[in-house]
Simulated scan of single mutants.
Amino acid sequence: MRIALKYIKKIVFVVIIAAFIFIAKEARNYVFSVDGYSCNFDNIISCDHKNKIFNFINLSKELKICSLESISQKIQEKFCVIKNIELSHAANGILNLNIYSNKPKFILNDRYVLSENKIIFEKSIFSKNFLNDCKPVTLNSDEITNEIEDSFRQMIFSFPEQYFQEYELIRESRAKSYLLDKTNKNFSILFNDFVVPDDRLLAYCSYIKNELQARGEFNRKVKKNWFADIRFEDQIVVVSK
């Protein structure tokens, strides 16, 4: 009987210690009182957008009653351009936030930006220095939203960056896009979201362009636009208009 009682006491002691540790972990996020915020941003987003984020953080009553672990989540839900937030707190009650943003990758119709997390934003959100490295894309639509097809996002991110040095990308629909040759505006490669040109196909198209050039097709008085259509299986169809 004494042995059983001894084991029961040990079990109760272990349970109490475990409960104390659990409660301490859950409570530690609430012990720290937030008296103010210090936000450090990277240089990816514009000053105006940094101010919007800081004002939201500084004026939000909801954040003051959140655990530290949920503060980052709530800020990122409000501003999805944010990639990551590192939190630390000082003894004076100031919560330090190091805020990192998703990089812009493509400029759409010179008005919008498709970022590395595949979300479309207003161009004004990003700093001009980072926009200079973005690749331009023309879409056959004035209204560009995040409702755009996933096939477009997959297509555009599958393009090697060097393609944009030689071609301009113009997208009419998921079934028809053009790579317009920068050195010869009368030659384009026609493709779609599901058949994207690779190095092999581009080499074939370059050969076709050179053959047309050698025949003098681009120097005629009545100029025609030539298209190398790669949307067909195992063949390239060359047409002129």
Results as ranks from 00 to 15, higher is better:
Lys74Ser: 08
Val237Gln: 01
Asn184Leu: 02
Ser70His: 13
Asn210Lys: 14
Lys52Trp: 06
Ile71Ser: 10
Phe54Val: 12
Phe32Lys: 03
Ser60Phe: 02
Lys176Leu: 09
Leu87Glu: 09
Leu179Asp: 12
Leu68Ala: 08
Leu190Ala: 00
Phe22Tyr: 06
Phe164Val: 02
Arg231Pro: 05
Asp48Glu: 04
Gly216Met: 03
Lys224Phe: 06
Thr138Tyr: 01
Ala24Lys: 15
Met1Phe: 11
Ala27Ile: 15
Tyr100His: 09
His89Ser: 12
Phe13Tyr: 12
Ser33Cys: 08
Val34Glu: 08
Ala4Gly: 05
Glu86Asn: 07
Cys134Met: 04
Arg220Ser: 11
Val237Arg: 01
Glu161Tyr: 09
Tyr7Pro: 01
Ser33Leu: 15
Asp229Val: 02
Arg111Ile: 06
Cys205Ala: 04
Arg2Val: 12
Glu116Asn: 09
Lys105Ala: 05
Met155Trp: 04
Tyr30Ala: 00
Met155Ile: 10
Ser115Met: 06
Leu201Trp: 01
Phe126Val: 02
Trp226Gln: 05
Glu211Gln: 07
Ile75Trp: 02
Arg111Cys: 10
Ser33His: 15
Phe20Pro: 08
Val137Lys: 04
Ser240Tyr: 03
Leu201Asn: 02
Asn184Ala: 10
Ser124Leu: 01
Ile189Glu: 00
Phe79Val: 07
Lys185Phe: 03
Ser88Arg: 12
Asp181Ser: 06
Asn219Ser: 14
Phe227Pro: 00
His49Leu: 05
Asn84Val: 11
Ser60Asp: 01
Phe159Glu: 03
Phe79Pro: 11
Ile170Asp: 07
Tyr167Gly: 05
Lys176Gly: 03
Gly216Gln: 03
Phe54Asn: 03
Lys52Arg: 12
Phe227Trp: 02
Leu97Gly: 04
Phe56Lys: 02
Leu179Tyr: 09
Pro104Cys: 00
Val237Asn: 08
Pro197Cys: 03
Lys83Ser: 04
Ile8Asp: 03
Asn98Ser: 14
Asn43Gly: 07
Lys209Gln: 04
Leu114Met: 08
Gln165Ser: 15
Ile3Thr: 12
Ile230Lys: 01
Ile71Cys: 14
Cys80Gln: 15
Leu180Met: 14
Asn92Ala: 07
Ile3Ser: 10
Asn146Trp: 00
Ser188Asn: 06
Cys66Trp: 12
Trp226Pro: 03
Arg220Met: 10
Asn55Leu: 06
Asp199Ala: 04
Ala175Asp: 13
Ile156Lys: 00
Lys221Phe: 08
Ile236Arg: 06
Lys9Glu: 13
Tyr37Gln: 08
Ile144Ser: 01
Glu69Ala: 15
Leu190Ser: 08
Ala19Ile: 15
Val12Phe: 13
Cys134Glu: 02
Cys205Phe: 03
Gln165Thr: 14
Phe106Pro: 00
Phe232Pro: 04
Ile120Leu: 07
Lys223Arg: 13
Lys64Thr: 05
Ser177Arg: 00
Cys66Ala: 03
Asn102Met: 09
Tyr207Thr: 15
Tyr207Asn: 15
